[in-house]
Every structure is written in structure tokens, then in C-alpha cells.
Amino acid sequence: TETRTFDSEEEAKKAQKEAEKQGRTVTITRRDDRWEVRFD
């Protein structure tokens, strides 16, 4: 599991799309003013 933090939802969604192309499961969580993206 890898976790990355982004400043914008746009960036988080971009990372999510990339990871899903690779067949990974992605979870996006809102953390205050940041977006946390978890790759499984």
C-alpha cells in the first residue's frame, strides 16, 4: 500500500486514473485542505 497526498482534487483524480489503468485499487480521502490517495 502506498499513500500520497495532493493539494488539489484534480491532482488526486489524475493519480487515481493512472493507478486504475495499472489495475490498482485507489481510495481518495479528504484530509482538511489536502487530498490523500491510497494505492492498494
Rank of each mutant, 00 (worst) to 15 (best):
G23E: 02
T25P: 07
R24Q: 13
E18A: 10
A15K: 02
E11L: 06
I28S: 01
Q22D: 12
E18F: 07
R31V: 15
T5M: 15
T27G: 02
D32F: 08
V37Q: 00
R31Y: 12
V37N: 01
T1W: 15
R4G: 04
V37P: 00
E36Q: 05
W35S: 00
E2Q: 10
F6P: 00
E20G: 04
E11T: 03
T5H: 09
D33H: 07
V26K: 00
D32Y: 06
F39I: 15
T5R: 05
E18C: 07
K14D: 11
T29G: 05
Q16T: 05
F39K: 02
D32N: 13
K17R: 13
S8E: 03
I28E: 00
T1R: 10
W35D: 01
R38H: 12
K17N: 10
D40K: 06
A19I: 06
R24K: 14
A15Q: 04
E18L: 09
E10F: 08
A12G: 01
A15P: 00
E20Y: 06
G23C: 09
F39H: 03
E11Q: 07
Q16D: 01
T27V: 10
T27E: 06
E18T: 05
E36R: 01
V37M: 08
V26S: 12
T3C: 09
F6Q: 00
Q22H: 12
F6L: 02
D7S: 11
V26R: 00
R30N: 07
E9S: 03
E2W: 15
E36T: 05
K17T: 11
R24Y: 15
D40E: 14
F6T: 01
E11P: 02
R34T: 11
E20R: 07
E9Q: 06
A19D: 02
K21N: 11
K21W: 08
S8Q: 03
D33F: 04
F39P: 05
R38D: 04
R38N: 08
D7F: 14
T5D: 05
R4A: 09
R30F: 15
D32L: 07
E11W: 02
T27P: 01
R31G: 03
V26H: 02
R34M: 13
K21I: 09
T1K: 08
K14E: 13
A15S: 05
T5E: 09
E10H: 07
A19W: 13
K14I: 12
K21G: 13
W35H: 01
K13W: 09
E20K: 06
D40I: 13
T29P: 00
S8I: 03
Q16Y: 10
K14V: 11
R34H: 13
K21T: 09
R34V: 15
D32P: 03
E9L: 15
T3E: 04
K21Q: 13
E9M: 08
E20F: 07
T25A: 09
T3P: 07
G23H: 04
T25V: 13
R31K: 14
F6D: 01
F39V: 10
A15V: 10
T5Q: 08
T5F: 15
E11R: 04
R38T: 14
R31P: 02
T5N: 06
K21E: 15
V26A: 15
E18G: 03
T27Y: 08
R24I: 15
K14P: 00
E20D: 04
R24N: 07
A19S: 04
K21R: 12
T25L: 11
A15N: 03
R24P: 02
G23P: 01
E10L: 08
D33A: 05
E36V: 12
R34Q: 11
T29L: 10
A12P: 00
D40H: 13
R24T: 07
T3A: 08
D33Q: 08
F6K: 01
F6N: 01
V26C: 13
T3W: 13
V26N: 02
E11M: 07
I28D: 00
K13L: 15
D32K: 09
R4D: 03
A19G: 09
V37I: 10
Q16C: 14
K17Q: 13
T3F: 13
Q22C: 13
A15E: 05
D7L: 11
Q22K: 08
R31W: 07
Q22R: 10
T27F: 07
E20M: 11
D7A: 12
R24V: 14
D40L: 12
E20N: 06
V26D: 01
A12E: 00
K17D: 11
E11F: 03
T29R: 08
E2T: 12
R4T: 08
A19K: 02
T5I: 15
K17H: 11
E9F: 15
S8F: 04
R4P: 03
K13G: 04
K14A: 14
T29N: 07
T27R: 06
R24S: 07
R24H: 14
E11V: 03
E11G: 07
I28F: 01
E9W: 15
D40P: 05
Q22A: 12
E18D: 10
D33G: 15
R4Q: 12
E11K: 06
A15M: 09
R4N: 05
D40Q: 11
A19V: 03
D32R: 05
R24G: 06
T27M: 06
E9I: 10
E11S: 06
E10Y: 09
Q16P: 00
T3N: 06
G23R: 02
A19E: 05
R31M: 10
T1A: 12
E10Q: 08
Q16N: 02
T25F: 12
R31Q: 09
K13E: 08
E2Y: 15
A19P: 00
T1I: 13
D33W: 03
T3K: 06
F39T: 06
W35I: 02
E10I: 08
T29M: 09
E9K: 04
R38V: 12
D7N: 10
R38I: 11
V37S: 01
A12N: 00
T27I: 11
I28W: 00
R38F: 08
R38G: 04
Q16L: 10
T25M: 08
F39W: 11
R34F: 14
R34D: 04
R34P: 01
K13R: 13
T3Q: 06
D33K: 05
I28Y: 02
D7E: 10
R4M: 15
R30D: 02
D33I: 03
T3R: 05
W35K: 00
T1P: 12
K13I: 14
K14R: 13
K13S: 06
E9P: 04
D33Y: 04
R38L: 08
K13F: 11
A12R: 00
E9T: 02
E18W: 10
R34S: 08
D32T: 04
S8W: 02
R30Y: 14
R24L: 15
E2M: 11
R30E: 07
A19Q: 04
E20W: 10
R38P: 01
Q22I: 11
S8L: 04
K13P: 00
I28V: 11
V37L: 13
K17V: 13
E9A: 06
R4I: 14
R34I: 14
D32V: 05
W35P: 00
T3Y: 14
R38Y: 08
G23Y: 04
E2R: 08
E2N: 10
K14C: 12
W35R: 00
D40Y: 13
G23L: 02
T25K: 14
R38A: 10
T5K: 05
K14N: 12
R31D: 04
Q16V: 14
D32Q: 10
D40V: 14
K13V: 14
A19F: 13
K21V: 07
R4H: 11
T3M: 12
K14M: 12
E20T: 06
T1S: 13
Q16W: 07
S8D: 06
R38S: 11
T29S: 08
A12F: 02
V37A: 03
E36D: 04
T1N: 11
V26Q: 01
V37H: 00
T29W: 06
A12H: 00
Q22G: 08
A15W: 14
R4W: 15
S8N: 10
T27S: 09
A12T: 02
E2F: 15
T25Q: 11
F6G: 00
A19T: 02
A12D: 00
T29E: 09
E18Q: 08
R24W: 15
A15T: 04
R31T: 09
W35M: 00
R31F: 12
E2S: 10
K17Y: 13
E36I: 14
F6M: 02
